[in-house]
Design a protein around this nucleic acid. Sequence first.
DNA 1: TTGTAAGCGTTATCAG
DNA 2: CTGATAACGCTTACAA
Lengths: 360, 360
Amino acid sequence: MKRKITLKQIARELDVSISTVSKALSNSKEISEDTTQKIQAFAKLYNYKPNNIALSLKNRKTKTIGILIPEIVHHFFSTVIRGIELVANRRGYNVIVGLSNESFTKEIINMEMLANGSIDGFILSISKETLLKQDYHHFNATINQGMPIVMFDRVVNEVDCDKVIVDDFNGSVKAVNKLIENNCKNIALITTMDYVSVGRLRTQGYIEALESHKIIADPNLILKIDDSLDVENHLEDLELEIEQFFKINGSIDGVFAVNELYAVTAMKVARKLGLSIPDNIQVIGFTDGVLSKHATPSLTTVSQHGQKIGEQAANLLIDRLVAADTEDDQYFTNDERKSDFIKVVIETEIIERESTKQFR
Amino acid sequence: MKRKITLKQIARELDVSISTVSKALSNSKEISEDTTQKIQAFAKLYNYKPNNIALSLKNRKTKTIGILIPEIVHHFFSTVIRGIELVANRRGYNVIVGLSNESFTKEIINMEMLANGSIDGFILSISKETLLKQDYHHFNATINQGMPIVMFDRVVNEVDCDKVIVDDFNGSVKAVNKLIENNCKNIALITTMDYVSVGRLRTQGYIEALESHKIIADPNLILKIDDSLDVENHLEDLELEIEQFFKINGSIDGVFAVNELYAVTAMKVARKLGLSIPDNIQVIGFTDGVLSKHATPSLTTVSQHGQKIGEQAANLLIDRLVAADTEDDQYFTNDERKSDFIKVVIETEIIERESTKQFR
DNA sequence: TTGTAAGCGTTATCAG
DNA sequence: CTGATAACGCTTACAA
């Protein structure tokens, strides 16, 4: 078991100085052909690789990105990670992952842990508890320390940084429009509580789509599920709640659900109540995950393109890191910079499958 | 935008030496009450936090674990990550994630990237391509450099390290036994190619279960799907292949599939062929993910307890890191150590749902 | 062409 | 009680 070899050891072994070794290995032409050859051969033989930590300390940058998300066992988030990882690796960065588990405290702890030198910047999505509390000081503190943040999906105006979001509003509009075109007369919405911004936006899209067709949104047709802090989904409760909802509103012939779980559960309940899909009820979900694809009938959904979100976020962050590296910091004041932040909107797309009627 | 403050700056500001500051902050009693107070107050004011990178360099350990998995958009793997992250954080470690994307080369590149000082040890699951090639030199090289590895799920005898595996064999046996008890006479197996060890073991369990009931396994009832290197699942192909299989073997009344995708697809195909589940065909899958839970009918599965696997793996790794930290390295030779490696087997559990008959 | 030395941020050892 | 110094592994002026 030989520990990894260092410049120092190579130098000692070959009886040259450390800096000679360093230069030789980076092909500096300060060093003679001969010694360069000798040193490189030796280094290859012993499989020398520079120590990342030492490099990080010296260069004051780690070439790694911190990802902080509420939950990893979630198709959308893992898709985003895949996207981030893809471009990060391509551009020479590593990726370190922290999970807030939807908790404010864990979010802060994780941020502090990573912000102390371990990473060059954050890509994150805000936890539900933080959104509830509306306490964003830790994000701003991090940014003020000179560590850039890119937020995605669950973002917030109170923090000045680059953002990548899904066009939740228009996604909903498209979905509801589709249901209207498909002759649904009583379109229900199954959504979350308003404090999750994406839930709110999707709800607004629903209302807007109806109104643009001169339909007044009926509050009775909106079911708000309170999944506030219980990450583990209590399936039976959900089913029960939706079943109640359907029974009270017997006329529902279209359902738009803000996530695939709600959509799939709605289909299950509908079937249980003897309704057939898409003949009696048509269903559209948000988030195009495994569930939608493999449900029976397969689910028409609004796809969010999670991987693309991740790729965009990573590119934004790395662009900024590279820029910070190059530019003369002095030329800008903080204020000048503020206007600079970019908000990328990723368009949604409706994936038509079996849970809506086909007209053709 | 103030950069993070360092010991040096505090020292300069307070007109003491760096080492005094360092000691004061670690509550060394070498330092007088007075100065300690003053320094700590100042440090708190400026929110001083020691720089992780500097600590890593000094201590020659990073307190971070490298995870290397084939794919993150996969319920099982993300469950494992969650488990790892859970205990890692509890025990003061961070987690850095690399994805091999089932590629041999990417696996190696990622390992080398992380092995150069960024992490203290690996938790990994082998990529399919690596299993195909049977080239494990990079794992052994890493271990020889003194970096411990814990493998999970996709493991291999050729590498000496701690391992956490699912009891694939007995899981299959249990599943097939259940089908036999439920009066299935012609039980089919839908599995992967043999080079994925878990596929092989599950196949063996199937055969064993049949034989223990004096049933001779019929090779025609075994469908081996070749998903070798195409990570993106070609759903239509899969459906077609399974449909062919069902048509050729009209007598099938039970299906055991080695993952949930195959199981769910089998159910879909069965329904398409006018067969009802569980009346005409009973189905059991492996891996208890979202698909199983929300399929219609919901799928009886062999649960692998991914999170528990992650927790165990992390504990094994950290135990070893802590031990390496304490022990006098000289006392052991490599050989003595070999016998030392632990293989933890996580028991599977059958989760009964609607795709099998209930007898009670 | 090669070597010395400083510095990245810490901590530990040893003098004062 | 406090401070100087070395060391972790590396790069890079600057000397020689």
